[in-house]
Computed example of a mutant assay.
Amino acid sequence: MQQTRLDIARIRAARQVIDPVFLDTPLYRCEALESSLGCAVSIKLETANPVRSFKGRGTEVVAGLLAEHGPRAVVCASAGNLGQALAWSGRGRGLDVTVVASRFATAAKLDRIRALGAGLELVDGDYELARERAAAIARSEGIRLVEDSLDIETCEGAATIGLELVGSATPFDAVLIALGGGALATGVGHVVKALTPGAEVICVQPLGAPAMTLSWRRRRVVTTEAADTIADGVAGRCPIPAVLNDLLLAADDAVLVREESIIAGMRMLLDHSGLVVEPSAALGIAAILEDRDRFAGRHVVTVVCGSNVDLDVYRRWVGAAPGDGL
């Protein structure tokens, strides 16, 4: 019988390790969105923290363990958010952090990694090439490789979001979760299925970067030649088998959304919620926009998972002018 790698007891224990600045993030019903979307929508806001994404929950668990028992030097590949989070968590624990990223990654994310004191190496390729380079550095220098989603601590750190959802007074019957490498989706999905089994767990991925969704649908790893999406945080091409196994148990559905729906979701979150978000954070709203009948009359939670954007690019996406205060 297939089993998940995640464990509820460890997830509960993770809350004791994670800096409180990342915990108990706002969860609120956003009525301003509801007339446009046709359903009740609650937002779980994972951007009001020092790294402006949910990733700090997982890196806090990783860095806490390394500070006690592991090597003091670590390397990871990142599209930007994990690198920021590991740099932040490592700095507070005296770890030597190196981040490998694509030189085409969001400039604001790369600048923040540098500002947090991590070493940054850029590769002339996408996230998958950065993963290969990070693994090579770990082998050659004998340091710890932190792999997002494969390292269970990154999933169980993210899963603490699920504990906060099911422990709140906000009733919901579906949760929409951005799907990339899988840490957020498997973590939150596992907790929701275990503790609120009546709620539907729906993972959302861009049509231009569908590898994990295709893998979930076919129940085997499916890789893609390219990833073409503005949602850089979920633009992987090569799913990790162990993470897919966890996702198969945690998700009720996985859907793909178009780029124009992602942009429309970002614009709605700005106009109706006052939130500047990165494309990955708007995937849940995009899913509702593309299938209103499915969600009509339901209460849906969407996890707003990051807000690290280049503002000039963001303005072009949402049609805002510099004078609009962005």
Rank of each mutant, 00 (worst) to 15 (best):
C155P: 01
F172N: 08
G182N: 08
R315K: 11
S140M: 06
C39W: 10
Q84G: 01
A194Y: 10
V243I: 13
D271Q: 07
L86V: 11
I230Q: 02
D253M: 15
R112G: 00
V303C: 10
I288V: 10
D252W: 13
L33A: 13
T98Y: 14
L82V: 12
L82K: 06
A9T: 06
L122I: 03
A211H: 07
V166C: 14
G90K: 00
L289N: 13
G119I: 12
I152T: 14
A77Q: 08
T170H: 08
P50A: 07
D19F: 00
L184K: 03
I152F: 08
T154Y: 10
V221R: 15
S36W: 12
Q3S: 12
S89M: 03
D19Y: 01
L269F: 02
G56Q: 02
L27M: 08
C305K: 04
A296F: 02
C39V: 05
C203E: 05
G208D: 07
E278K: 03
E31H: 11
L86Y: 04
L65I: 09
L176M: 14
R12D: 15
A107L: 10
A320I: 00
A281V: 08
D151A: 07
P279I: 15
E290T: 15
I143Y: 15
D124T: 00
E34F: 11
R267T: 08
I113P: 00
S89D: 01
R112T: 05
A115W: 08
Y314T: 04
D271H: 13
I137K: 00
A264Y: 00
A48P: 00
A77C: 05
R5Q: 12
T106P: 01
E60P: 01
G162R: 02
F172K: 03
S273F: 00
A115S: 13
V21F: 15
R218V: 10
E200G: 03
I285D: 14
C155L: 08
A227M: 15
Y314C: 09
L45C: 10
D19Q: 06
A251Q: 03
W216G: 09
L82S: 09
G56P: 05
L95R: 03
W88E: 02
I230A: 01
R114N: 02
A183P: 04
D293I: 10
E290H: 01
G142Y: 11
R72C: 14
D293P: 00
A296W: 00
I263A: 06
G64R: 02
V21K: 11
I202Q: 02
V146Q: 06
D228F: 13
S89N: 04
G306D: 14
V100M: 12
G142D: 14
M1Y: 09
L179S: 04
V201T: 11
R267N: 13
S35A: 08
T224D: 14
G319D: 09
G198E: 11
A138T: 15
G189W: 07
S78D: 11
D151K: 03
G182H: 15
S42Q: 09
V222N: 08
I288N: 09
D312V: 09
V166N: 04
L122F: 14
D310P: 01
A130W: 07
R57W: 04
K55M: 12
A67M: 00
G297W: 02
V75D: 05
E132C: 06
T25D: 12
L247V: 02
K44D: 15
S215T: 05
S280I: 10
R29K: 10
A118R: 04
I113M: 04
T160R: 11
R15G: 04
V303Q: 07
